[in-house]
Design a protein around this nucleic acid. Structure first.
Lengths: 183, 183
DNA sequence: ACACCTTATTAGAAAGCCCAAACTATATTT
DNA sequence: AAATATAGTTTGGGCTTTCTAATAAGGTGT
C-alpha cells in the first residue's frame, strides 16, 4: 500500500493527460466544464469520466466536488496546457510539413503527444521554424514536396524554385544555370 | 463472452506490437528466441512474457508450445516487420532530421511507432527522401539547422550554403550576391 | 544417476481503464 | 409543487498488462 505522497509522485498516464487536455480545451470553449462534454470529447461513457475525475482529484490535478463544477488546479493547468501544445505542434507538423489531412493528423497527433518529450517537441518547433525561415527553403518550397511525392523525383522543380527565390537576381541566375549546364 | 473469430479480428494492442517487434528483432539476431531474452529486451519479467506468448498464440501471431522454441507465424511476421519499419523510420527522423540523441530517439520512436499509421509513416519517409534529394536542400543543408537552433536566425548561413550548392557557378554567384545587396 | 543451476510456467493479485445497469441529484416543464 | 427529463454517480464486472512467489522442466557436471 502506498501513501499520499507516492500517489502524487507517480507519472501521469496517457489517459490522464488526455483528460487534462480535454478539460483544458473545454474550459476555453465553455463557461463550465461538464462530465457529459468530457465524455463526448474523449469518446467514453460518463461513468468512466466520473471515475477519472476522482483519480485526478486525488492527484491534485483538479478541484472537484461531486455534482459541482470542476476546475483545473495550477498543476493540472500546466499539464493540460503542455499536452495541448504538443497536440497542436504535432498536428501542425503532420498537416503543414507532411501534408496529411486534418482529421488523420489530429487523431495521430493525439496518440503521438504522449510519446514525445518536451525537448523533442521543441525540436519539432525549431525544425518547422527553420524550414519556414531559412531563405533557401521557405514555406513555398514545401509545395514541391507534393509534386515530388506524386510525380517522382524532379530536381528541376527544386532548381526552378531556387531561381525564383533569388528574386532580385533573376537576370543573372539565368546565366548561372547556363554555366551549370556547360559544366 | 466472445468466440474465437472475434478474438482474431480485434486490433492489436501496443503491447502486443512491442512483443512482436522484439521477437522479430531477436529472431534476426539469434538462432532461437527465448523467453528470457524477450523479457530483457522489453524490460519486463519472464512470467509477463509467458502470459503474452499465450495471448499471441491464441491470436495466431506466433507458434508456441510451452517449453518449446517459438516462431512468428506469417501474420506475426508481417506485424513484427511493420513495427520494426516504423521504429526505424521514426528513429531516423528524430536523429537525422531533428538531431536528437540516439537513446532518446530510440525510446520515443518506440512509443511513437504505435501512434502513426502506415500511410503517415510513408510520408515521413518521402519527406526525408525529399530533403535529401532536392538539390536546393540536400543532406548537408541540415547542418545549418543546428546553427540555427544554437545561434539564432542567421539567414546568411543558408545563403552561403546556396552558393556552395551552386558548385559550378561559384564565380558568378559572387556577382549575384552583390546584385542582391544592392537591391 | 544425482544434485544443481538456469529457464520457464502457474497461480494469484494489483493497477489502470473501460462498460452497463441501477440509482440519485438537478433542472425544466407544466 | 409534481412530473418529467437530463446529468451525474455508484456498483460491480471485464479486459489488459504487469508483478511476486511458488513450482516444474531442462541442461550440466561430477
Amino acid at each position: 500500500m502506498q501513501n499520499k505522497d507516492d500517489i502524487l509522485k507517480k507519472p501521469l498516464t496517457p489517459a490522464m493527460e488526455d483528460y487534462l487536455e480535454a478539460i483544458f480545451n473545454l474550459g476555453k470553449e465553455k463557461r463550465v466544464v461538464r462530465v457529459k462534454d468530457i465524455a463526448k470529447r474523449l469518446g467514453v461513457k460518463m461513468p468512466t469520466v466520473t471515475n477519472m475525475l476522482k483519480t485526478l482529484s486525488k492527484r491534485e490535478l483538479i478541484d472537484y466536488e461531486k455534482y459541482e463544477y470542476l476546475e483545473l488546479t495550477k498543476k493540472g493547468l500546466d499539464v493540460g496546457k503542455e499536452i495541448h501544445r504538443r497536440h497542436h505542434t504535432l498536428r501542425s507538423f503532420l498537416t503543414d510539413m507532411l501534408n496529411i489531412d486534418f482529421k488523420t493528423a489530429d487523431e495521430e497527433a493525439c496518440k503521438m503527444e504522449h510519446a514525445v518529450s518536451a525537448s523533442t517537441l521543441d525540436r519539432f518547433i525549431e525544425f518547422m521554424e527553420f524550414i519556414q525561415f531559412c531563405p533557401r527553403v521557405g514555406l513555398d518550397w514545401l509545395k514541391y514536396f507534393d509534386e515530388y511525392r506524386l510525380h517522382g523525383q524532379e530536381p528541376d522543380k527544386c532548381l526552378a524554385r531556387m531561381k525564383e527565390f533569388a528574386g532580385g537576381f533573376k537576370v543573372r541566375i539565368k546565366t548561372m544555370q547556363k554555366v551549370g549546364e556547360e559544366k
